[in-house]
């Protein structure tokens, strides 16, 4: 369905903590592994052992360097997957209705049986969240692991996205943004969750927690016990051992 639902009762999505993400790529291959055998066509690879390998991934981790005005440069890792936007342009451009935003939870999906592989939705997405699979000729994107989060064949605790389950640092959080008391809502409120490229008007559901300020240690030097030059080692020894009497 190409038109967007007016509003969804739940707004499922991720909070990704850039202060915690070490850029380990676990979420990348966990996602690839899960989706290679799950929802829709496998995520194919072209020339996998050749000179120019290339394949479909639904989640990729970027790494940026930032030079603040008055502090040492920093590196920040930024995993990038579908943000399940509320005003998802990828949905409205789709000529076939293959792209749709689920009315019940806001997940943006591609119905691969209907997709003609025109690629327009990928053009419409500001975030590069859609990749055309070269083998299947259909558009692939993060499904928010819709085949996990409600899956009754999985133990309850595992009903979360594969990338979230895999992330060793716990930098990825999954939940309902429509519920102000959910972990994701609380975290983004507390840490000032940000939307990527807000000027494009997509109103992303997924939010990112910005890195905390760095290199702010302000401790002042320790006060010396006494002036060792003046009182010598013996004086120091006396003084320090006096401490434990």
């Amino acid at each position: 369905m190409t038109t967007l639902p007016q509003s969804t009762t739940t707004k499922l999505g991720l909070v990704i903590d850039m202060d915690t993400c070490v850029g380990c790529q676990a979420c990348v291959t966990a996602c690839k592994g899960w989706n290679d055998q799950g929802y829709g066509a496998p995520l194919s690879d072209q020339d996998p052992y050749g000179a120019n390998p290339s394949g479909t991934f639904l989640n990729r981790v970027h790494s940026y360097q930032i030079t603040p005005e008055d502090a040492a440069p920093i590196i920040v890792n930024l995993p990038r997957s579908c943000l399940h936007c509320e005003d998802a342009p990828c949905v409205t451009v789709c000529p076939t209705g293959a792209s749709y935003k689920r009315a019940e939870d806001g997940i943006v999906l591609v119905n691969e049986d209907a997709c003609i592989g025109c690629g327009l939705c990928a053009w419409a997405c500001p975030y590069g969240a859609r990749e055309m699979d070269a083998d299947a000729g259909v558009m692939k994107k993060c499904t928010l692991c819709v085949d996990r989060i409600y899956n009754e064949n999985l133990p309850e605790i595992d009903r979360e996205p594969a990338c979230v389950r895999a992330c060793p640092t716990g930098a990825r959080h999954f939940g309902d943004f429509a519920d102000p008391d959910s972990k994701v809502s609380l975290l983004s409120a507390e840490r000032g969750g940000i939307a990527l490229m807000p000027e494009l008007g997509t109103r992303p559901v997924n939010l990112y927690l910005p890195p905390r300020p760095k290199d702010m240690m302000t401790a002042s030097p320790l006060a010396p016990l006494l002036d060792i030059r003046a009182s010598g080692f013996a004086g120091w020894l006396d003084k320090i051992l006096g401490k434990i009497g």
């Binding site: 850039m18 990348v28 120019n52 390998p53 290339s54 394949g55 479909t56 991934f57 990729r60 981790v61 970027h62 790494s63 940026y64 360097q65 930032i66 030079t67 603040p68 005005e69 920093i74 590196i75 920040v76 930024l78 990038r80 990928a122 500001p126 590069g128 990749e131 055309m132 070269a134 940000i194 939307a195 990527l196 490229m197 807000p198 000027e199 990112y208 910005p210 890195p211």
Partner: peptide, 26 residues
């Protein structure tokens, strides 16, 4: 790049590493 990454307020943002050294559809 600052608004795309949300990191603009911290300082000048530059790419350090691409996610993959290999090519991709995007």
């Amino acid at each position: 790049i600052g608004s795309a990454t949300g990191l603009g307020p911290i300082g000048a943002v530059k790419v350090f590493e691409h996610p993959h050294t290999g090519q991709n559809y995007l």
